[in-house]
Each structure stands twice: as C-alpha cells, then as structure tokens.
Design a binder for these strands. Sequence first.
DNA 1: ATAATAATTAGATATTCGCCTAATTATTTA
DNA 2: TAAATAATTAGGCGAATATCTAATTATTAT
Lengths: 95, 95
Amino acid sequence: MEAAFKAINDVTRREILQFLIQGPQNAGQIAKQFDMTKPSISHHLDLLKQAQLIDATKKGQFIHYSLNKKGFESIHQWFQGFAQHFEFPKPKIRL
Amino acid sequence: MEAAFKAINDVTRREILQFLIQGPQNAGQIAKQFDMTKPSISHHLDLLKQAQLIDATKKGQFIHYSLNKKGFESIHQWFQGFAQHFEFPKPKIRL
DNA sequence: ATAATAATTAGATATTCGCCTAATTATTTA
DNA sequence: TAAATAATTAGGCGAATATCTAATTATTAT
C-alpha cells in the first residue's frame, strides 16, 4: 500500500496510468508520449510495477505493460475507510 | 489534486487522517498520538490543510482540526477514471 | 502585567526523489 | 556472427522532503 501511494505521487506516473487505459503498451510506446529519456520512464515503470499498479510481460524483445487491478484495489480499500464518513456522488442505478 | 496525492504519500499524515475519523481534535491531541515533535506534526497538518483533506478552525488558543471532504473528493474523482476499467466490490444495496 | 500554555515559524540537516548520460543485457535481423 | 533495436541498470547531481531544536506569536490565567 505504501508503494501505491508513493507511485501515484508523481504526475508522469499518473499520466502513464492514464495512457494505459487505452490498453497495453510497450516501454518504447510509453516513452514516446513523454518528453523524458527512456531510462527515466523505465524507472517510473519500475515503481508502478512495484506498487502493482501495472503488470509487465515480456514478448520477445518488447515488454508489454498493462494496468494491474491489485494496486488500485489497495488504494480503493484505504479510501473506503473515509468514504463511509462522507457522501460521494453515487451512480443513479446500480450497474 | 497534486497537493492531495502529495499529502497522502506519508504514513504519519495518513494516520492523522485516520485519527480524525473519530472526530475533530486540536493540534496537541493529535501530536500526543505520535512519537514526533509538535513542530513536525504542525508541518504535517499544514500539508493536509493545503490539500484540503482537513480543515482548521481556531477556538481560543486551540486549533481544531477536522476532516475536509474536498480533498477526498479530488482523489475520488481521479480514482473513478480507473474504477470504470476494473470491477471493485460494490455494496449489495444502494444506500 | 507576568507567567503559562498552545501552536506555529524559522533554520539546519540527512535522506529520498526525479532526471540525466553512459554502459549493459537481451533479442531480432542481415 | 555482427549489427541493430528494445529496454534496463548504474552512477551522479540538484531539488524536494521529513525531522529536529530554537525562537516567535497568540491566548488564557494569576
């Protein structure tokens, strides 16, 4: 959980997560989106992976990164502890 | 939003938020909970306030701190962007 | 008015963080 | 097998962070 909070405390990493909503991408494709060197992006990916916010699977010489539910769940759980004390906008219907 | 992510990226500050679930507390009462000097706690409170995760209201020489919905909402909003891509446990009934 | 209490502000220091360049590893293609 | 491509690892550096002690501000009580 510690790792997840740390991971999302950075604009670039949050933007990487946003980008991955579109679907899995390899490190090069991710790096292209940012005005930053590949090693720096690689480091960000590492932290996101440690936080289990993303998964990495090697496909040949490429590594595909995709969102990982686990990390988000740990943040969600923490958040739920407070959500009960506030009222957050709820969907009109239960999906 | 930036400020909220920053604020929750620290164990002490998250514990302060947890503590405030019990209800408003002044700075001294909060500081007593932690093995840390009052100035350090004061600084943490300042960051939480900047993030609008807590409110501060002066009552005489005391300052009462309480949870503030606003900061939590900004985190909630960010999170919702991903929640739609995963399935998180939902309550059985709509409250 | 003075002393005591609550809390913050200021300044210093050690650690962590984010970024870079250079070097390395692993895989594919010619 | 040699060259090219994808990505990471290593090492260094300035900026930001968390903590402490000392000093300051504001309020209450004697």
